[in-house]
Simulated scan of single mutants.
Amino acid sequence: MNRLTKVASASSIAVGLILGSGITAANAEEAPDSAEAVFTEFVDALKVDAKTDAALTEQFDDLPPAEQERVADAIEANPLSVMEFDAGAPTLTAGTGTTAQPALAHNVASSIKSAAHHNIATTKRASARNAASGLHIQTAAAAPRYTATYPVNASLFGITTGTFNMRYVFEATSTNVTRNLECTGWFTGVAGVWNISTSQSNYVSGGQGTCAVKYNMSLAFKGSFFSANKQQQLVYKGTKLTSASLKNI
């Protein structure tokens, strides 16, 4: 039953009681809150800043009355249902990998310096050994490091109220992810009635690296609790983005 039907039913009950039994209007069933009152209570619960509050209220006031009723009914049924999720484009930033065996490199340099005090034959042999060791160091060095970031805005009427953030750090060649270093997700923005917990998982398979963050969201509004679960995910094959998503789970 929508808001307009509720109002009509409440009015019918009130009239019937008044005419049939003499009960005063004060004892009749109370009409539900107006659409404007429901929306105002919802925005107050979000605890957004004054600028965002004013912008949201202005957008709601500009809606036709029938659309205001629809939004208010949706908020009362499940406040999470009126939120929109707008994904930005993931960005990938290159960094510098660390040398895997710095101690070995230092030992090779010391060996080269000591070899200079030996005869020519010994020096040639030491140089050959050091050259071989140097080649090994180059092979063992870590692949370049990359950091991928992926923001998804939670908004209402196109006005951002919070952001799901993801950071995925990994080592990779141009064609293969070789190691995951970090997979992190968090929500920033209004606190209000939101309660969000996160859990992360990541793996590398066949040169493809995956970072996934699950958000368990709950919301208290007008004495009721609502929940929704979402998963934000990034997948890279080397330095090439394979997929980026935020979906219900």
Results as ranks from 00 to 15, higher is better:
V169Q: 08
A55V: 01
E76R: 13
L56G: 05
S110E: 14
S81A: 15
R167K: 13
A154H: 09
K113R: 02
A148L: 06
T161K: 03
P102H: 06
K113I: 07
L92K: 08
N119V: 00
L56R: 00
E69G: 13
A55W: 10
P79Q: 09
D62C: 04
A100E: 15
A109V: 05
E171W: 03
Y146D: 03
N130I: 10
A66P: 00
A77E: 15
G162H: 10
A55F: 01
T161I: 14
E67S: 11
P144Q: 00
A132L: 13
R70N: 07
K113G: 11
V108M: 02
A109G: 06
R125T: 11
A132N: 14
A148R: 05
I112N: 12
G158E: 06
T98A: 14
I75P: 14
N165A: 01
Q101A: 06
S174T: 05
T123G: 11
N78R: 05
T139P: 00
T175S: 15
L135H: 12
P144G: 04
R167L: 03
I120Q: 11
E58Y: 05
P90R: 04
T160H: 01
R167Q: 12
H106P: 04
A72L: 00
P90L: 05
D86L: 02
T99I: 06
A54N: 10
A54M: 09
G95V: 06
A140P: 07
Q59C: 04
T91K: 02
S133Y: 07
H117Q: 05
A66C: 05
E58M: 00
V82G: 03
T122R: 06
A55N: 09
A115F: 11
A142S: 14
N130D: 15
P151H: 07
G97F: 07
S127W: 04
E58Q: 14
T57P: 06
L80E: 09
P151I: 02
A115I: 08
L156N: 04
A128H: 12
S111T: 08
K113H: 05
G97I: 00
H136M: 12
Q101F: 15
S114Y: 13
V152I: 11
A154C: 01
S133R: 08
I159S: 02
V108A: 12
A66V: 10
G162S: 12
V82L: 03
A154I: 03
A77K: 15
L156V: 07
N130F: 10
H136T: 05
L156F: 12
A116Y: 12
R125G: 07
A74M: 13
A126S: 14
Y150G: 07
A131M: 08
V108R: 04
F85V: 00
P102E: 04
Q68W: 06
F157T: 06
Y146K: 10
F170M: 08
P64G: 04
F164T: 00
D73V: 07
A126Y: 09
T175L: 04
E171Q: 15
G134N: 13
S155L: 04
Q101E: 11
T161L: 13
A128L: 11
A77R: 15
A66Y: 10
R125Y: 12
D86Y: 07
P90F: 10
N165W: 03
V82M: 09
G95I: 00
A140I: 09
E58G: 00
E84S: 14
